[in-house]
Amino acid sequence: MALPHCRALDRPLLLRAEGLKRQLGDRLLWGGLDLELAAGERLGLVAPSGAGKTLLLRALALLDPLQAGSIRLQGRPPSAWGLPCWRSMVSYLAQRPVAQGGTVETNLRAPWAFRELRGRGGWSRGRITVWLEALGRDPSFLTYDAERLSGGELQLLALLRALQFDPTVLLLDEPTASLDGSTTTALEALLIAWLGGGGRAAVFTSHDSGQIERFASRSLELVP
């Protein structure tokens, strides 16, 4: 594939999707969609509501069967990675995140029990605390009852839950929709710093055109 050449570039290609299509009944949401994502990129998806932004993010995480086309991560198809491994590297954050019972910390620790993630370093309170500080939150956030979090706090929980696995590609579905202005700014800064770690990229959706302008390094308009 094209990958060996890309590796030579200073911005290696991480994710490549070709000819993706999504149809709901007779309605074509998007078709013939090609997408390339290089390290460090922050790709903003632009489209009106109902145009299938969420479905595209879900497709990249392979949470739905592909109707057409193919996706490769670092040149390898999903079957070569194994689906659980793929999803730990191409991490999808839902628009309305959910938490299970227990504290925030319980929720952050829970995925480490998955077979795929066992033996990958495990829970690190230190890293989480640093991120929490960057988001203007006290470490006591970890002791909050996860089922009583506000919508914005849930989004923070979901972000931390995904970040701790160092995914290659973050798929963020309106990650700041329920956040106040200052936390939004802090979250954007945290993501930019995190992406600076190398070999990482993000795709996000937002209905805030200001955020697309401010945060996206490139944008993609979804058209049928």
Binding site: P84, R87, S91, L93, A94, P97, P111, F114, E116, F165
Partner: peptide, 11 residues
């Protein structure tokens, strides 16, 4: 809940 677990790398 199920899809959250899947999205995090659960089988």
């Amino acid at each position: 809940r199920v899809e959250t677990a899947l999205a995090l790398g659960g089988t």
